[in-house]
Design a protein around this nucleic acid. Structure first.
Lengths: 223, 223
DNA sequence: AAAATAAGTGAGTGATAACTCATTTTAATG
DNA sequence: CATTAAAATGAGTTATCACTCACTTATTTT
């Protein structure tokens, strides 16, 4: 547990950056809040100015365009997302064999779930952007997906050799795990009711572990 | 398999509606395509007119506003989504005990997956709307969620009594299944690479069945 | 404290996009 | 074919919004 605590990297950058003025800070915060609440296109720069308690001209002082403002908000998270994805796979952790599925899933997903939870607003803005901007989406995916597939792949193969994990194609394993993560994220982003977040997080690990546990019903049907 | 085939209800309504003119048909089709491609806000009415090959005034002939146009597109799917969700739970099917999990999952999700697959564009437009329109989202959820929880709940309870299903709280069971469905949907909506759709559909049933199969690792950890 | 630099302001501007309407074109009817 | 009704048109109107800029206020430097 001596791993660095996951935080909201947007907040972190805001508080660490000494050069930024309080008003600029307020503008970034208001933008993030409004983009997550109403969507990027539905948020006007005058909305942002009003929420931040500044004049509209101030919004344009540091960031030349509205899009640049959004990108500035997403910069900290995109800068930190790659290390987060890569962590646990590097050097030591990769060589060490996981004694159980539970250990594997916990090690792999605890950080990522915490990261997602700490950056719900930012992720919502990213998803909105990715949903309708094919180019950006493919750019983001091409940076992350191959790395993830490769690194997770070698761990999964090792678990397969030890007969600790279900014998499915790696892409199916990854997909089913990511679906769970994605469903959890959707719950957070959409503020779906009936969710005791802390409880759900433990559930997530349990469900993932169960998916991966080898059993009798593991044939792929219908093909 | 004598169950009615799932179709794109938007297409269905378009082709069935005899009163609609070809140009109006083209407008609806162009709107759906563009909303799904670029997003609602990023699509202008002149975009729609151009894609449909009509004058911009024609777009406003039948639908007074752009939002009304979107709602007209979503009307058929929302009108049909409730019956789809409710099907398989009504009368006979509910009384009949499922002999196996596989049978249960197949019966429950085959139609829904097919429905989702046939209405990807419409669902994408719905999700965009729901993501940032809290009121609409809650309205939609309040219509669907309780019905689903109640009907699925009784089936799940019966399976539990027969010891055919994992002994988790019903909401967790539902949530993990819906996450899988949601992840599959996201794959379709975002056109993620490496997806052989037909194969994936069979995978989905398999993964869901595996999640539900009772086993030794079914404790909820972490409280 | 004067000068210089940076931050902030808000009225103003141009462009865009939703929506209207007087007119024209097409289709239906007798 | 003439008349009437419905459908379609596209130039025009209005409102909004991203963005600018001449100016004011605050902060730093000398």
């Amino acid at each position: 547990m001596e791993r660095p605590r996951i935080r909201d990297y947007f907040q972190q950058d805001l508080s660490q950056n000494e050069t930024i003025t309080p008003k600029q800070r307020a503008i970034l915060q208001a933008s993030l809040d409004l983009f997550a609440e109403k969507g990027f296109d539905q948020t006007s720069t005058s909305d942002i100015a009003q929420r931040a308690g500044v004049a509209e001209g101030t919004v344009y002082r540091r960031y030349k365009t509205k899009a640049a403002l959004r990108d500035a908000i997403l910069a900290p998270i995109t800068a930190h997302i790659v290390p987060i994805l890569a962590s646990d796979f590097s050097e030591d952790k990769l060589r060490q064999r996981y004694p159980s599925l539970q250990a594997f899933v916990t090690a792999i997903f605890t950080d990522r779930v915490a990261f997602a939870k700490a950056n719900v607003k930012e992720l919502k803005v990213i998803f909105e952007m990715a949903a309708f901007d094919t180019e950006r989406r493919e750019q983001i995916l091409s940076q992350i997906a191959p790395k993830m597939v490769k690194q997770m792949g070698s761990v999964i193969n090792q678990l397969k050799a030890d007969h600790l994990i279900v014998d499915w194609p790696n892409d199916l394993i990854l997909q089913s795990l990511l679906s769970q993560l994605f469903g959890y994220l959707a719950q957070l982003m959409l503020e779906l009711p009936g969710t005791e977040i802390e409880r759900e997080q433990a559930y997530l690990i349990t469900v993932m572990t169960k998916i991966l546990t080898p059993g009798e019903h593991d044939q792929i049907t219908g093909q």
